[in-house]
Amino acid sequence: MDQVRVAVIGLGMGFSHARTLAAGRIAGGKLSAICDLNPAKQEEAKATLPSDVKIWNDADALIASGEIDAVIIATPHYAHPQVAIKCLSHGLHVLIEKPAGVYTKQVREMNLAAASSGKVFSIMYNQRCNPLYKKLRELIADGELGEIRRMNWIVTNWYRSQSYYDSGGWRATWGGEGGGVLINQSPHQLDLWQWTTGMMPKRIRAFCSFGKYRNIEVEDDVTAYAEYENGATAVFITTTGEAPGTNRYEVTGDRGKIVIEDGKLTFWRLRVPEPEFNQQYTGGFGEPECWKCDVPISGDNPQHSGIIQNFMDAIRQGTPLIAPGEEGIHGLTLSNAMHLSTWTDHWVDLPLDEDLYYELLQERIAQSSSQKTVREVGPVDMSKTFGTY
């Protein structure tokens, strides 16, 4: 395929992707269509995008039109799996925005549809393009850090004011977004947490506060503790209510410690692995010799355009995906587990009880103040649900 005809559905975050394609910044990709229910967004698209880009307000009709080869889905969270399954069933390649969905049960259905479709399926985990996290993943995979013992991620630089939440009736509601800081702001960190280490926990205990700092119904402050099969532990802390915020990711192994903070990767490398030192040392007080290494990071960070280009290359040339869509379920599993642990006031074992999570989520959706509630996943008129996000 010389050129992939791409449509963008949802012109909130999707407008940026549409402009990237329209500007010719993606080799092998052409923006052929956009779809949004909001007339104002349609007019903005007409005024700012090339005249040959067809504007639709009916997602079903666009998907079935035969005029496109691939779709970038930037709809509200609940609709990601629904639209993706519809697109895949019509033989279209799919790139979804994060998160993969709101709950793993619906995402699992999407993954099954993608696996049987034979089409390219990717997710917008653009932070996987960041050379800092790529280097961390490489160092861990190569054994430089040894066996992982502890992970700590404090990501509290997601400050959001009350006016931000008041800007849309769907924001920070169970019916509109399906969660708060975990589902909206932190999906990238939840993905990177498991992607860089190659590990998923065996159980999680979390403490989510709902509307702690803002007048919202979902979580805006989270502290979670996770345990792993090899004995490693992790703490994940995030909030939208603190200023100034911190973003510090620390991974400790038996060969040292790696910290990513302020755009730098620092490796405190032990000259002798801790278990070996402990076995041999007889001097009482003492610790292994440690070298502070500022690891050079090379390469650019193409962010969203890097994922879109990779998506095009996978369609045209079979290039391996940076972020396969099926992997979106991992980070979502972590956020679902944190919600479930808080709702039940108990540990949650992984794999989690997806039916219980769905049941308890539905209870919250039924009481949600959202003006754009999606109560069930099932047959719906997509032209009336997939508007501006």
Rank of each mutant, 00 (worst) to 15 (best):
Y133R: 10
L37P: 00
V374R: 00
G328I: 12
G179K: 01
N336A: 12
G176H: 01
W170P: 00
R316W: 08
T333W: 11
N126S: 14
D294L: 10
G91F: 12
G176C: 04
G331H: 13
Q3Y: 11
S117C: 12
G263H: 06
Y249A: 13
G328A: 13
P244Y: 08
R203F: 05
Q367M: 06
G146M: 02
I26R: 03
L360R: 03
R203M: 07
G241V: 14
T240P: 08
P296F: 10
I55F: 03
M110A: 07
S117D: 05
V374W: 02
G306C: 12
G256W: 00
G286T: 13
K119C: 15
K384H: 02
V53M: 11
E276P: 09
T385G: 00
S369I: 07
D353M: 11
R269I: 03
A100Q: 09
T75C: 02
A337I: 11
N184M: 13
D191A: 14
S122I: 11
P273M: 02
T156A: 11
E287V: 07
L145T: 01
S167F: 12
N310E: 07
I55Q: 03
K119Q: 13
A234G: 14
M338W: 11
Q82H: 03
W268V: 02
G175L: 00
S32L: 07
S186Y: 08
E138T: 15
T233C: 05
W170N: 00
A27Y: 06
K86F: 05
I68R: 01
I297V: 14
M110P: 03
T197H: 01
V102C: 00
G168Y: 11
A61E: 13
C208K: 02
Q189K: 10
A79P: 01
W153G: 02
A100H: 10
R316E: 07
E289F: 04
A22N: 09
V155K: 14
S305G: 07
P131M: 12
V348T: 06
R271D: 03
R128C: 14
Q185G: 06
L139G: 04
L360Y: 02
W158R: 15
P201C: 09
C290L: 01
G66E: 09
T20R: 10
I297R: 00
